[in-house]
Structures are given as C-alpha cells and as structure tokens.
Design a protein around this nucleic acid. Structure first.
Length: 307
DNA sequence: ACTCGTACATCCACCGGCGA
DNA sequence: TCGCCGGTGGATGTACGAGT
C-alpha cells in the first residue's frame, strides 16, 4: 500500500488538489502512483462529506465547481500548515531523542565540554552525544567531510563549506604550583623560565607549535624535562611539582579551581592569544539537537574571550 | 449517419494493514 | 478476531474523434 506523502491526515485533500490541478482522475492517478478508482472514490467521499459536488463531470473533463474552487483555496493553506506542523514535530522529536557528534581537542574535552554537556543534558536528557578527541585541523576536517556535526579546536583554519559559530581569544600563560615564586605575579615573560624545569607540548599540537615559534624567535633556551602531546599529562606533571607548563586556562579548569595550579599570563608580544573556535557545516545543516548544543557551546566559548 | 477504437470515470469484488 | 479503511484489477457505461 503506497501512502501519499502527507499520510492519512491529508491524503484526501492531496488527491483532490492533484485532480483539480491536472483536470483528470487518470492523470492524477499516474502522478500519485495509485489506481484511478482510489482517487475517484476519494473524491466521492469528499463530496459526500461536504454535501456538495466538487467537480462538474462534462466531456471527459473534470471542471471545478464553486464549492471545488473554495476547497482548492483552503486545502492549499491546510496542506502548507500541515507541512509546517510536521517540521516542528520533527524538530521536537530530534530534541527528545536525537544525537550529536562532536570532534574536539583534548583540552576542550577536559573542561569546557563536560561542563556544557551537563547543562545540555539537564534540558535534553535523551540526546546521545558522540565525542571524538583529535588534533585541531583534523577536528575541523571531520566536520567538512560530514563525519560529525560540530568541532571545537584551536588556531585552525575552518575548511571550505564550514561555518564559524563562535570564537574566543585565550591568553597563553604559565601553569605553576601555588607556592612558586612567580605564582603571585599578574604577568610573566617566557625568559623568566629559562632556568626552570619545563613541561612542553610537542609540535603535533597547535599549542606546541606556537610556543616553539615564540621560543625560537626570542632566542631563549629552555630545559624541557618532558615533552608530550597530552594536555592531561602536562598538567598532571605540573601538579606533582615536576615543572611548570605553558598553555591556556582551557583544559585545566579543575586544577585552577581546586588551587592545585595557578595561571600566570604571559606578557610576551610574540605569544599571541590562541583562537578557540566552534564550527559546523553551516547552520542550515544542523538538526535540532546539534543546534541546541551549538547554542550552549557558543555561549560558553564567548564567555572565555579575553581570559 | 454509422461504426470502431480509444480514453475516461465509475462500480464492484476482493485484498491487506491496522486498531479496538 | 473482526470491522474499518484504503488499496487494486476488471467490468461497464459514456463520450469523443477518425474513418468509411
């Protein structure tokens, strides 16, 4: 049994509209892919219900009566309203039990994302979320390829076909233990850590490459005690007093809140703020679930701007 | 004018899915 | 399980146009 595109709610109106448009039950039947008899009977039912003929049967041609003209006008409005209602209902269902996929850099997955998802799930508890941690450029490319709905990353170029939804400039700084000599300072220079044990991120992270460029540009020689691509390890080493590390506040929210580390921003002009960005494949592509999460993430990212 | 082929709407019997 | 509803295919009646 082939149902017309509007289902039972408006199939009669849809049949009627098609017959009125084509002026023939047979052509309407071909257009709708049903038997002519089905349409004929549907029209008869409508006429019985309304108590008035909708077509004049003359010379093998169906011509709308005045009642038919009135119904054509109102049926068009009704079908359009049903389409609108269907779109709203689809969106509502997407928010009730849809899914969202996100690619994010590790630092975002440690703090910003869990915090925002807690708020998201308090409103939309049945929307499933798939989170993949990866490098910045890879995260953005995953969105461009349609493999995920949203991506959050640092200092990466949004690929063609994607749209930037939010951005924030985040200062780079040193993460030091509370008892460190520089912990109370309002700002520091990179060269002040020349004699220190430092924990650096490797060049596979955008963080690593921007710090490496600043080190090379200033001619400072640092003594890295550890080099890693893990934001988690960098902060864990720093908390245990193995050395100081350099990054933004994103990813170490818990350590800062609990007083395990202190963030001291850099004053070096060569250490420019890092740009955190949220992208999607264009707002028009976002279903209800991803759109709702994107709105919450945008708000959270914009609150970070300048910090 | 009549016949014939074609196109169309309608009627009827029957089938299958779905909900009470 | 049964009734309702919407589907299909075949039969039938009607109208039209072309050919004779």
């Amino acid at each position: 049994m082939i149902l017309p595109r509007h289902g039972l709610i408006s199939s009669r109106l849809h049949y009627f509209q098609t017959v009125a448009r084509l002026g023939s039950i047979r052509r309407a039947a071909q257009a709708l892919n049903v038997a002519p008899s089905a349409i004929s009977r549907t029209i008869q039912h409508l006429e019985q219900e309304l108590g008035a003929p909708l077509f004049e049967r003359a010379r093998q041609r169906l011509k709308l009566t005045s009642a038919g003209e009135i119904l054509v006008y109102h049926a068009g409005a009704s079908v359009a309203e049903l389409d609108r209602a269907r779109a709203f209902i689809d969106d509502l269902q997407g928010l009730r039990r849809g899914s969202v996929s996100i690619a994010a850099v590790e630092s975002v997955a440690r703090g910003l994302l869990p915090e925002t998802l807690s708020r998201f799930w308090s409103r939309y508890p049945d929307v499933a979320v798939q989170v993949t941690t990866t490098g910045s450029q890879q995260a953005f490319e995953a969105v461009a390829r349609g493999e995920c709905d949203l991506a959050i990353a640092f200092d990466a170029r949004p690929p063609k076909g994607t749209q930037r939804l939010a951005g924030a400039n985040l200062r780079l700084g040193a993460l030091v233990p509370p008892k460190h000599a520089l912990a109370a300072r309002r700002g520091v220079r990179l060269r002040e850590f020349a004699a220190e044990r430092v924990i650096l991120s490797d060049a596979s992270l955008t963080l690593g490459s921007s710090i490496e460029a600043a080190i090379l540009g200033s001619g400072i020689e640092l003594k890295p005690i550890a080099v890693t691509n893990s934001i988690h390890l960098m902060s864990a080493f720093a908390v245990r007093g193995h050395g100081v590390t350099f990054q933004t506040r994103v990813g170490v929210e818990r350590e800062l809140e609990e007083g395990e580390l202190v963030f001291v921003p850099f004053n070096d002009p060569s250490l420019r703020p890092r740009k955190l960005m949220l992208i999607a494949r264009g707002k028009a592509h976002l279903a209800a679930g991803p759109a709702a999460l994107a709105a919450m993430l945008s708000e959270a990212i914009q609150r970070l701007d300048g910090r």
